[in-house]
Design a protein around this nucleic acid. Structure first.
Lengths: 239, 239
DNA sequence: CACTGTGACGGTACGCAGTACCATTCAGGA
DNA sequence: TCCTGAATGGTACTGCGTACCGTCACAGTG
């Protein structure tokens, strides 16, 4: 009931574009010309040939015209996680986060214009960060639920995993936004492999058997390694 | 030059508390009574027996009265990193992030009241998240600079490390804010050890010798482990 | 004591975001 | 023709944040 908007070319062939898209176009044009803060909602509506009221009917706020899809994406990710059947929570999440990346890629140039704006206007950057934090929260809760275990170490693990997945995504996304790569999909695959490799596969439920290899480099500070060693042992035969 | 405020009991013994602290007290009291959005800046100033103008002279915004110390903390962290002499960037950062935790602990009950507010008001939660993101960004840049290497893998590594440190910090902080622990300092030490253990010590420059132990559990999906294996081998004798 | 600077405070006015409410227009169906 | 509903426009209001100016207390200086 919340996602009716998003007029995907409903006006068929050759008709004046919808009010919504006209507003978005006007907004971005004005932001480019005068900057974000120097543009009022009145300006946007006027250029679009519409009233101020109509603007707020289509976008909840001035910022919202730049980030119109986050809510929809969040729902999409929720669904994906709910229906996902991966062997580990981490894999499920690293799969789900691709939806975000793909959405940006799909936006193409628009995403890059938004990036140019968020780079200059801190209020917009903060807004974007808050949105991403919502994804991360979703991931964290999913992983925590998935692991079931309510111990602190499990909770910390969920926090670290969700943070790592989001960080890897951000890394690749930023590279793509800056034009430092054209094959973001391949890079995110690689990055996610790195993330998976970070975490011993202890988030899969009770893996009884399996090969156990051990590989550490420790010039010192063995204390630092104790927690992870302990964790590995826990999954093994005995304490 | 930017951090003059923060009147730390300059009024010696028995005198009316400063305007700044009276404003903060009034604000929190009203937020508790009516809620954040139901409280106007006029209300706050009036209860403090001051004018609206004075409020904005002491706090840049209505939100700022709840988060007055982030800028100062950010500077503090910057200094700490700049003057830190740790063996690895990750250790330096995980040390620096303690400043944030300690600051919250020092605030005591005030931090918990703020947490109660941010839990209810999404605008405040977003604001807090944005502040934390600034710390994370600082960490990321520090680690990236420290590693020097401008390869993508190094950049991703910096991103993952800073995210992990912040995630671990958040985990412990939240536990403390919820009253789930009283010894947050010990827990953050433990959590940071976990984080250190996540990353092979490849961010320290050319560690030639050292014990090398290996610890993997792999019932499957060897592909996922390849990257980290490769990284370990790189640091070793030969390819 | 008078003069003067300075810093903290109060008041007024303004711009703009966002909300509430009502009026208008237009298309399509009974 | 009339009615209905959806999209739009207009007006007015609240509240945040800023700019500007005036006032007052208090220091130092002659």
């Amino acid at each position: 009931m919340a996602s009716e908007g998003r007029d995907g070319e409903r006006w068929a062939i050759m008709s004046k574009p919808s009010a919504r898209s006209r507003l978005a176009d006007s907004a971005f044009a004005l932001f480019d010309e005068r900057g974000y803060e120097q543009t009022t909602v009145d300006d946007i509506a006027e250029r679009a040939g519409l009233g101020r009221t109509t603007f707020f009917r289509h976008y909840r706020s001035k910022e919202d015209v730049i980030f119109p899809d986050h809510d929809r994406l969040l729902d999409l990710i929720r669904d994906r996680l709910a229906t996902s059947s991966h062997r580990t929570a981490l894999v499920a999440v690293s799969d789900a986060v691709r939806l975000v990346l793909l959405h940006y890629l799909d936006e193409g140039d628009l995403a890059r214009r938004r990036y140019a704006l968020t780079s200059k206007v801190s209020a917009l950057r903060d807004r974007e960060i808050a949105s991403v934090a919502r994804y991360q929260r979703l991931f964290r809760e999913f992983i925590a639920d998935w692991m079931g275990d309510s111990a602190q170490s499990a909770s910390l693990r969920a926090e670290l995993m969700s943070a790592a997945v989001v960080a890897a995504h951000n890394h690749v996304l930023r590279r793509w936004l800056r034009g430092e790569t054209t094959d973001a999909v391949a890079e995110v695959d690689e990055a996610m492999r790195d993330v998976l490799a970070l975490f011993p596969a202890a988030d899969s439920p009770a893996t009884g058997a399996g090969t156990t290899v051990v590989a550490f480099r420790t010039g010192q500070d063995i204390d630092a390694l104790l927690p992870s060693l302990r964790r590995l042992v826990e999954g093994g035969t005995e304490h």
